[in-house]
């Protein structure tokens, strides 16, 4: 594969292609097994990379570095944190404005985020996440990092459904908003996704549907949209009810 193809596939994997380019690449992937194979190969490195980055955080000599910081008087922590939180909001707004100026983000115009997830899902095969078997500590570190960026409170225990194994999680961008993907696989390696779009949208009741080969469940609360997707309607139904806290 050429460098240009790798760059295109990487932008797709990173969620940085605009809707028309994304749709065109999805069409080419569907028609070209060797392109799909390259997509799988490039996709496969993200999980181990995330494991390594999480492992580095866990291995940081924090106590030693903290001890070496200059001593200071007790700080007005709550005040400082409030200001810092305001800073994050401002930075997020500036970031959104910047994102709107470049053509490389997903979207460009509003389209259905669940359909974008379906399109990504079609590309994921058992091969995509093969070999990823993070231990509990790594899973907690990855889930913690991704949920922190999305502003959601989800623990690995809450996410897990019997029969589905956690594989990896990462954050894409959809229409300027963070889109978190948590990838799982059943015993046969078939991928399932739990996705969160942090776009400050209105609450939505649980809705289930079938789209092509996939069952989907969507709901919205606390300014986030949630989605679970996979081939088995039974698994999706169970998972959605577990995650929404229903019976």
């Amino acid at each position: 594969m050429s460098d240009a193809v790798d760059t295109e596939l990487t932008a797709l994997l990173d969620g940085r292609l605009a809707a028309p380019e994304r749709a065109e690449l999805f069409r080419r992937l569907a028609a070209d097994p060797s392109l799909q194979e390259r997509f799988d190969a490039l996709a496969a490195v993200r999980g181990p990379l995330d494991d390594i980055f999480a492992g580095m955080l866990a291995g940081a000599p924090v106590a030693r570095m903290r001890a070496a910081l200059p001593k200071r008087a007790p700080a007005p922590r709550r005040f400082a944190r409030a200001r810092l939180a305001a800073g994050f909001v401002i930075a997020a707004l500036v970031g959104a404005a910047l994102a709107a100026l470049v053509t490389l983000n997903i979207g460009g115009e509003k389209d259905d985020w669940s359909q974008a997830v379906v399109e990504y899902m079609r590309l994921y095969t058992p091969e995509t996440f093969a070999g990823l078997k993070p231990d509990a500590a790594t899973e907690a570190a990855i889930v913690g990092a991704v949920t922190a960026r999305l502003g959601v409170h989800v623990t690995p225990e809450k996410l897990n459904l019997p029969g589905l194994a956690f594989k990896t999680a990462f954050v894409l961008t959809y229409d300027g908003s963070p889109l978190g993907e948590f990838a799982f696989a059943d015993a046969a390696g078939t991928p399932y996704l739990f996705c969160v779009l942090a776009d400050s949208s209105a609450p939505q009741p649980l809705h289930q549907e079938k789209r092509g080969d996939y069952a989907l469940a969507t709901w919205g609360r606390d300014g986030k949209q949630f989605l679970v997707i996979g081939p088995s309607p039974k698994v999706i139904d169970d998972w959605a009810h577990t995650l929404t806290g229903g019976a």
Partner: peptide, 12 residues
């Protein structure tokens, strides 16, 4: 973009 593609290609 080209650096990230090169990273993925090299790691893959």
């Amino acid at each position: 973009m080209s650096r990230l593609a090169a990273v993925r290609a090299a790691l893959a």
